[in-house]
Write a protein that binds this DNA or RNA. Structure first.
Lengths: 145, 145
DNA sequence: TTTACTGCAAATAATTTGCAAAACT
DNA sequence: AGTTTTGCAAATTATTTGCAGTAAA
Protein backbone atom coordinates (compact mmCIF):
# COMPACT_ATOMS: atom_id res chain seq x y z
CA UNK A 1 0.00 0.00 0.00
CA UNK A 2 1.47 3.34 -0.96
CA UNK A 3 1.88 6.24 1.33
CA UNK A 4 -1.09 8.33 0.23
CA UNK A 5 -3.36 5.31 0.43
CA UNK A 6 -2.38 4.91 4.06
CA UNK A 7 -3.23 8.53 4.72
CA UNK A 8 -6.59 8.23 3.05
CA UNK A 9 -7.32 5.07 4.99
CA UNK A 10 -6.40 6.92 8.20
CA UNK A 11 -8.92 9.61 7.38
CA UNK A 12 -11.65 7.08 6.71
CA UNK A 13 -11.00 5.36 10.01
CA UNK A 14 -11.21 8.65 11.81
CA UNK A 15 -14.68 9.07 10.36
CA UNK A 16 -13.94 11.66 7.71
CA UNK A 17 -15.65 11.49 4.34
CA UNK A 18 -13.51 10.92 1.33
CA UNK A 19 -14.16 13.67 -1.17
CA UNK A 20 -12.33 14.19 -4.48
CA UNK A 21 -10.94 17.42 -3.07
CA UNK A 22 -9.40 15.66 -0.09
CA UNK A 23 -8.12 12.82 -2.19
CA UNK A 24 -6.34 15.22 -4.55
CA UNK A 25 -4.89 17.33 -1.76
CA UNK A 26 -3.57 14.34 0.17
CA UNK A 27 -2.19 12.87 -3.04
CA UNK A 28 -0.33 16.02 -3.94
CA UNK A 29 1.27 16.43 -0.54
CA UNK A 30 2.16 12.75 -0.26
CA UNK A 31 3.82 12.63 -3.68
CA UNK A 32 5.72 15.88 -3.35
CA UNK A 33 9.46 15.71 -2.84
CA UNK A 34 9.48 18.98 -0.97
CA UNK A 35 7.41 20.88 1.53
CA UNK A 36 4.60 22.87 -0.04
CA UNK A 37 2.72 26.05 0.74
CA UNK A 38 -1.08 26.19 0.76
CA UNK A 39 -0.95 28.28 -2.39
CA UNK A 40 1.39 25.86 -4.09
CA UNK A 41 -0.92 22.97 -3.26
CA UNK A 42 -3.89 24.96 -4.49
CA UNK A 43 -2.23 25.54 -7.87
CA UNK A 44 -1.35 21.88 -8.20
CA UNK A 45 -4.97 20.98 -7.52
CA UNK A 46 -6.08 23.50 -10.13
CA UNK A 47 -4.05 21.71 -12.76
CA UNK A 48 -6.36 18.75 -12.28
CA UNK A 49 -9.60 20.67 -11.93
CA UNK A 50 -10.47 24.33 -11.52
CA UNK A 51 -13.59 23.52 -9.54
CA UNK A 52 -11.83 23.53 -6.20
CA UNK A 53 -11.77 26.45 -3.87
CA UNK A 54 -8.77 27.74 -1.95
CA UNK A 55 -10.87 27.75 1.24
CA UNK A 56 -11.22 24.00 0.90
CA UNK A 57 -7.46 23.65 0.63
CA UNK A 58 -7.00 25.60 3.85
CA UNK A 59 -9.73 23.66 5.62
CA UNK A 60 -8.29 20.34 4.52
CA UNK A 61 -4.77 21.28 5.57
CA UNK A 62 -5.99 22.41 8.98
CA UNK A 63 -7.77 19.13 9.38
CA UNK A 64 -4.78 17.05 8.31
CA UNK A 65 -2.52 18.94 10.69
CA UNK A 66 -4.87 18.67 13.65
CA UNK A 67 -5.21 14.95 12.99
CA UNK A 68 -1.44 14.71 13.03
CA UNK A 69 -1.16 13.32 9.51
CA UNK A 70 0.63 16.31 8.05
CA UNK A 71 3.08 18.66 9.66
CA UNK A 72 3.12 22.39 9.31
CA UNK A 73 6.38 24.30 9.34
CA UNK A 74 6.72 28.04 9.64
CA UNK A 75 9.63 29.16 7.48
CA UNK A 76 9.32 32.69 8.80
CA UNK A 77 7.91 35.80 7.21
CA UNK A 78 4.52 34.15 7.10
CA UNK A 79 5.71 31.35 4.83
CA UNK A 80 3.97 28.21 6.02
CA UNK A 81 4.72 24.87 4.38
CA UNK A 82 3.25 21.41 4.72
CA UNK A 83 4.61 17.89 4.39
CA UNK A 84 3.48 14.43 5.38
CA UNK A 85 4.97 12.74 8.41
CA UNK A 86 6.83 10.46 6.02
CA UNK A 87 9.29 13.23 5.39
CA UNK A 88 12.00 12.32 7.83
CA UNK A 89 12.98 14.76 10.57
CA UNK A 90 15.34 17.52 9.51
CA UNK A 91 16.14 21.17 10.02
CA UNK A 92 15.26 23.91 7.60
CA UNK A 93 18.11 26.36 7.25
CA UNK A 94 16.33 29.42 5.92
CA UNK A 95 18.42 32.23 4.44
CA UNK A 96 16.99 35.53 5.61
CA UNK A 97 18.50 37.30 2.64
CA UNK A 98 17.72 35.17 -0.43
CA UNK A 99 15.05 32.99 1.24
CA UNK A 100 16.62 29.76 0.02
CA UNK A 101 16.10 26.71 2.23
CA UNK A 102 18.62 23.97 2.98
CA UNK A 103 17.34 20.74 4.49
CA UNK A 104 19.91 19.72 7.08
CA UNK A 105 20.45 16.62 9.14
CA UNK A 106 18.69 16.84 12.47
CA UNK A 107 21.08 14.64 14.43
CA UNK A 108 22.71 17.53 16.32
CA UNK A 109 19.31 18.36 17.78
CA UNK A 110 18.67 15.17 19.71
CA UNK A 111 20.92 16.30 22.55
CA UNK A 112 19.23 19.69 22.57
CA UNK A 113 15.83 18.03 22.83
CA UNK A 114 16.98 16.05 25.84
CA UNK A 115 18.35 19.13 27.54
CA UNK A 116 15.20 21.16 27.04
CA UNK A 117 13.15 18.31 28.38
CA UNK A 118 15.33 17.90 31.45
CA UNK A 119 15.93 21.54 32.33
CA UNK A 120 12.64 23.13 31.34
CA UNK A 121 10.26 20.16 31.08
CA UNK A 122 9.62 21.44 27.57
CA UNK A 123 8.79 18.89 24.91
CA UNK A 124 10.39 20.48 21.88
CA UNK A 125 9.12 19.80 18.41
CA UNK A 126 12.46 19.50 16.63
CA UNK A 127 11.40 17.31 13.74
CA UNK A 128 10.91 20.16 11.29
CA UNK A 129 12.45 23.17 12.95
CA UNK A 130 13.34 26.31 11.01
CA UNK A 131 16.61 28.04 11.68
CA UNK A 132 17.27 31.46 10.19
CA UNK A 133 20.57 32.86 9.06
CA UNK A 134 22.69 33.53 6.01
CA UNK A 135 23.55 31.00 3.34
CA UNK A 136 27.05 30.84 1.94
CA UNK A 137 26.28 32.95 -1.13
CA UNK A 138 24.69 35.70 0.88
CA UNK A 139 27.60 35.74 3.34
CA UNK A 140 29.98 36.32 0.43
CA UNK A 141 27.71 38.93 -1.07
CA UNK A 142 27.77 40.77 2.24
CA UNK A 143 31.57 40.73 2.47
CA UNK A 144 31.93 42.13 -1.03
CA UNK A 145 29.92 45.21 -0.20
CA UNK B 1 25.07 56.93 29.11
CA UNK B 2 22.01 54.74 29.21
CA UNK B 3 21.14 52.14 26.70
CA UNK B 4 18.51 54.03 24.72
CA UNK B 5 20.78 57.06 24.49
CA UNK B 6 23.38 54.89 22.81
CA UNK B 7 20.80 53.66 20.34
CA UNK B 8 19.67 57.18 19.54
CA UNK B 9 23.27 58.29 19.13
CA UNK B 10 23.82 55.37 16.76
CA UNK B 11 20.91 56.50 14.64
CA UNK B 12 22.25 60.07 14.50
CA UNK B 13 25.63 58.86 13.38
CA UNK B 14 24.05 56.80 10.66
CA UNK B 15 22.47 59.97 9.34
CA UNK B 16 18.92 59.43 10.54
CA UNK B 17 16.89 62.32 11.83
CA UNK B 18 15.76 62.24 15.42
CA UNK B 19 12.01 62.64 15.55
CA UNK B 20 9.83 62.38 18.66
CA UNK B 21 8.26 59.27 17.18
CA UNK B 22 11.60 57.52 16.85
CA UNK B 23 12.74 58.68 20.25
CA UNK B 24 9.63 57.28 21.89
CA UNK B 25 9.76 53.99 20.02
CA UNK B 26 13.44 53.40 20.79
CA UNK B 27 12.84 54.36 24.39
CA UNK B 28 9.99 51.94 24.80
CA UNK B 29 11.86 49.01 23.30
CA UNK B 30 15.05 49.76 25.21
CA UNK B 31 13.31 50.00 28.57
CA UNK B 32 11.13 46.97 28.13
CA UNK B 33 11.98 43.87 30.11
CA UNK B 34 10.47 41.63 27.49
CA UNK B 35 10.19 41.34 23.74
CA UNK B 36 7.37 43.40 22.28
CA UNK B 37 5.09 43.16 19.27
CA UNK B 38 4.57 46.08 16.89
CA UNK B 39 1.07 46.46 18.21
CA UNK B 40 2.24 46.40 21.80
CA UNK B 41 4.80 49.10 21.05
CA UNK B 42 2.16 51.12 19.23
CA UNK B 43 -0.13 51.06 22.26
CA UNK B 44 2.69 52.09 24.58
CA UNK B 45 3.43 55.03 22.29
CA UNK B 46 -0.24 55.98 22.30
CA UNK B 47 -0.17 56.31 26.07
CA UNK B 48 2.23 59.19 25.59
CA UNK B 49 0.57 60.76 22.58
CA UNK B 50 -2.18 59.69 20.25
CA UNK B 51 -0.71 61.61 17.36
CA UNK B 52 1.44 58.75 16.16
CA UNK B 53 0.49 56.41 13.39
CA UNK B 54 0.92 52.64 13.39
CA UNK B 55 2.58 52.89 9.97
CA UNK B 56 5.34 54.95 11.56
CA UNK B 57 5.86 52.25 14.18
CA UNK B 58 6.25 49.62 11.47
CA UNK B 59 8.58 51.82 9.41
CA UNK B 60 10.72 52.62 12.43
CA UNK B 61 10.96 48.99 13.48
CA UNK B 62 11.97 47.97 9.95
CA UNK B 63 14.65 50.60 9.98
CA UNK B 64 15.97 49.62 13.40
CA UNK B 65 16.11 45.97 12.38
CA UNK B 66 17.84 46.63 9.07
CA UNK B 67 20.39 48.81 10.87
CA UNK B 68 21.00 45.92 13.24
CA UNK B 69 20.05 47.86 16.37
CA UNK B 70 16.99 45.81 17.17
CA UNK B 71 16.32 42.17 16.58
CA UNK B 72 13.12 40.69 15.28
CA UNK B 73 11.97 37.27 16.43
CA UNK B 74 9.19 35.26 14.85
CA UNK B 75 7.36 33.42 17.60
CA UNK B 76 5.29 31.56 15.01
CA UNK B 77 1.71 32.02 13.94
CA UNK B 78 2.54 35.49 12.68
CA UNK B 79 3.61 36.72 16.12
CA UNK B 80 6.64 38.94 15.58
CA UNK B 81 8.41 40.50 18.54
CA UNK B 82 11.21 43.01 18.86
CA UNK B 83 13.98 43.59 21.38
CA UNK B 84 17.21 45.54 21.49
CA UNK B 85 20.52 43.77 21.05
CA UNK B 86 21.14 44.31 24.76
CA UNK B 87 18.81 41.46 25.49
CA UNK B 88 21.28 38.65 25.85
CA UNK B 89 21.09 35.68 23.52
CA UNK B 90 18.54 33.06 24.48
CA UNK B 91 16.03 30.62 23.06
CA UNK B 92 12.30 31.15 23.06
CA UNK B 93 10.50 27.96 23.97
CA UNK B 94 7.05 28.61 22.57
CA UNK B 95 4.19 26.34 23.62
CA UNK B 96 2.07 25.58 20.60
CA UNK B 97 -0.91 24.84 22.79
CA UNK B 98 -1.12 27.65 25.35
CA UNK B 99 1.28 30.04 23.55
CA UNK B 100 3.32 30.70 26.65
CA UNK B 101 7.00 31.51 26.10
CA UNK B 102 9.94 30.38 28.22
CA UNK B 103 13.26 32.16 27.77
CA UNK B 104 15.92 29.48 27.91
CA UNK B 105 19.67 29.53 28.14
CA UNK B 106 21.25 29.46 24.69
CA UNK B 107 24.46 27.67 25.66
CA UNK B 108 23.45 24.32 24.10
CA UNK B 109 23.23 26.07 20.75
CA UNK B 110 26.84 27.13 20.36
CA UNK B 111 27.88 23.67 19.24
CA UNK B 112 24.98 23.55 16.80
CA UNK B 113 26.04 26.87 15.32
CA UNK B 114 29.54 25.55 14.76
CA UNK B 115 28.26 22.42 13.07
CA UNK B 116 25.93 24.26 10.73
CA UNK B 117 28.75 26.57 9.79
CA UNK B 118 31.16 23.72 9.12
CA UNK B 119 28.83 21.32 7.33
CA UNK B 120 26.59 23.66 5.41
CA UNK B 121 28.50 26.95 5.44
CA UNK B 122 25.34 28.36 6.96
CA UNK B 123 25.71 31.26 9.38
CA UNK B 124 22.83 30.54 11.75
CA UNK B 125 21.20 33.31 13.70
CA UNK B 126 20.82 31.52 17.02
CA UNK B 127 20.74 34.52 19.33
CA UNK B 128 16.96 34.69 19.53
CA UNK B 129 15.72 31.46 18.03
CA UNK B 130 12.16 30.20 18.58
CA UNK B 131 11.58 26.55 19.33
CA UNK B 132 8.05 25.19 19.31
CA UNK B 133 6.69 22.42 21.43
CA UNK B 134 4.62 21.72 24.51
CA UNK B 135 5.19 23.25 27.92
CA UNK B 136 4.92 21.08 31.03
CA UNK B 137 1.34 22.10 31.81
CA UNK B 138 0.13 21.31 28.33
CA UNK B 139 1.90 17.96 28.32
CA UNK B 140 0.04 17.02 31.50
CA UNK B 141 -3.22 18.31 30.10
CA UNK B 142 -2.73 16.08 27.08
CA UNK B 143 -2.09 12.98 29.19
CA UNK B 144 -5.22 13.58 31.23
CA UNK B 145 -7.44 13.49 28.18
C1' DT C 1 -31.82 10.47 4.32
C1' DT C 2 -28.70 12.74 7.06
C1' DT C 3 -25.31 15.94 8.10
C1' DA C 4 -20.49 16.56 6.76
C1' DC C 5 -18.37 19.06 3.26
C1' DT C 6 -17.84 22.52 -0.34
C1' DG C 7 -18.03 26.90 -3.11
C1' DC C 8 -18.67 31.49 -2.99
C1' DA C 9 -18.10 35.92 -1.54
C1' DA C 10 -17.37 38.81 2.09
C1' DA C 11 -14.69 39.48 6.49
C1' DT C 12 -10.48 39.62 8.94
C1' DA C 13 -5.88 40.86 10.49
C1' DA C 14 -1.43 42.41 10.06
C1' DT C 15 1.43 44.93 7.39
C1' DT C 16 2.68 47.98 3.40
C1' DT C 17 2.40 51.79 0.23
C1' DG C 18 1.48 56.36 -2.34
C1' DC C 19 1.37 60.87 -1.69
C1' DA C 20 0.96 65.45 0.05
C1' DA C 21 1.96 67.93 4.24
C1' DA C 22 5.03 68.58 8.23
C1' DA C 23 9.37 68.94 10.51
C1' DC C 24 14.35 67.76 11.36
C1' DT C 25 19.03 69.60 10.35
C1' DA D 1 15.87 75.53 2.13
C1' DG D 2 16.08 70.94 1.21
C1' DT D 3 15.32 66.40 2.06
C1' DT D 4 13.53 63.07 5.41
C1' DT D 5 9.90 61.57 7.79
C1' DT D 6 5.11 61.34 8.93
C1' DG D 7 -0.07 60.80 8.81
C1' DC D 8 -3.71 59.21 6.40
C1' DA D 9 -6.30 56.22 3.87
C1' DA D 10 -6.33 52.81 0.60
C1' DA D 11 -4.01 48.52 -1.02
C1' DT D 12 -2.16 44.14 -0.17
C1' DT D 13 -1.70 39.34 1.31
C1' DA D 14 -2.82 35.24 3.50
C1' DT D 15 -6.22 33.18 5.79
C1' DT D 16 -10.95 32.56 7.81
C1' DT D 17 -15.89 32.50 8.09
C1' DG D 18 -21.14 32.40 7.27
C1' DC D 19 -24.28 30.30 4.76
C1' DA D 20 -26.92 27.89 1.47
C1' DG D 21 -26.43 24.19 -1.71
C1' DT D 22 -24.11 19.50 -2.76
C1' DA D 23 -22.79 15.02 -2.09
C1' DA D 24 -20.65 11.11 0.76
C1' DA D 25 -22.25 7.40 3.66
Amino acid sequence: MTHCHTLIEDLRQKGYRLTPQREMIVNIIAHSESHMSADHIYHQVQERTEAVNIATVYRTLDMLVSEGLVCRTDLGGGKIVYATREHGPHMHLVCKSCHSVIDANHAPLTLLGQELSKKYKFQADLQHISIFGLCQKCQERKVNR
